[in-house]
Design a protein around this nucleic acid. Structure first.
Lengths: 157, 157
DNA sequence: TTTTTATTGTTCCATTTGGAACAATGTGCG
DNA sequence: CGCACATTGTTCCAAATGGAACAATAAAAA
């Protein structure tokens, strides 16, 4: 596979016209796809469902629209996830008394337990993929990612 | 929207159990989705198609399997992309004389022109999303991303 | 050699996906 | 007030997606 005739498949990391975008996307795929496949196999959840769970684990109450904004996903996929997770007892929904359009979503204790299990899959895979960075590099990367992500969140308001 | 009653939607960047994975995925989405939507609208290409184009722009000749490995995408999506891009004249295919199973793919000049246009969309969006990093930070991020990506590429061999 | 195992590319099929249109509700402006 | 416009959540539908099985070829084992 890695003989002299085979091109170095990773040279593209350097030659691509958009190196940061390429590497970020590559890392995202490397982390999320395997974890996602395991989560689907072990819990039967699709991506929008555990994203919904993750959002609700970190806020007391959210609307579906807010979840869509936080996760940068289309509203209809969140809507579907809400229905399935409601049916499975992982969250509660109550109409907002102040605004008849929106509903207030909260995670249940069953949902929180499920999220705790699932987040282990993602943490483990994250640590595997970033495993060759030393502590300083890891800290530095984390900070730079946060700065960029906060800026990205302000775009496309 | 950002009044006192509204929770800070971005606190999750700090509280999530897998902060690097979350931020990387968030940035990947922030870069790729808008660019992807524009590329689809302006050129009618789906993601696997411009990924194929990008790979073939950076290697003289590749097999479909190699494209799948480089891009971490399932083989059947690459196979479909090859057929569409062949029909549109963006690449050439020739059977490998040494191995009857595989075919040697090359980009055509039309394909290269198309890739040049498309990569502008991704570069521009990349620079927008990373726009608040100064030169040192940007350089540092780029290096850390490369180190991690090279390591990720060696996983799941 | 023959037989088994692995690899490549493809097709099939069920599921996921997201854009667009929609009804219901709320907001702003005359 | 009345009327245009915006927002939320949902449904519809066409398209994309990816796992699994497949035929053809190659490599390895017996």
């Amino acid at each position: 596979m890695t003989d002299a005739n085979t091109p170095d498949l990773m040279q593209i990391f350097d030659t691509i016209e958009y190196p940061e975008a390429y590497r970020i996307t590559y890392l995202a795929n490397a982390i999320v796809f395997p974890a996602y496949a395991d989560i689907k196999k072990d819990f039967g959840l699709v991506r929008a469902e555990y994203i919904l769970l993750a959002c609700l684990s970190h806020f007391d109450v959210l609307t579906a629209q807010e979840v869509a904004r936080i996760s940068r996903r289309p509203r209809n996929t969140i809507s579907r996830a809400v229905h399935r997770m409601l049916a499975d007892g992982y969250l509660d929904r109550a109409p907002d008394p102040l605004d008849g359009r929106q509903a207030r979503l909260r995670i249940t204790s069953a949902g929180r337990r499920l999220h705790d299990e699932i987040s282990g899959y993602l943490s483990r895979r994250q640590d595997e993929v970033l495993g060759n960075l030393d502590a300083d590099e890891r800290r530095s990367l984390t900070l730079l990612l946060k700065k960029a992500a906060l800026h990205a969140a302000k775009l496309d308001t």
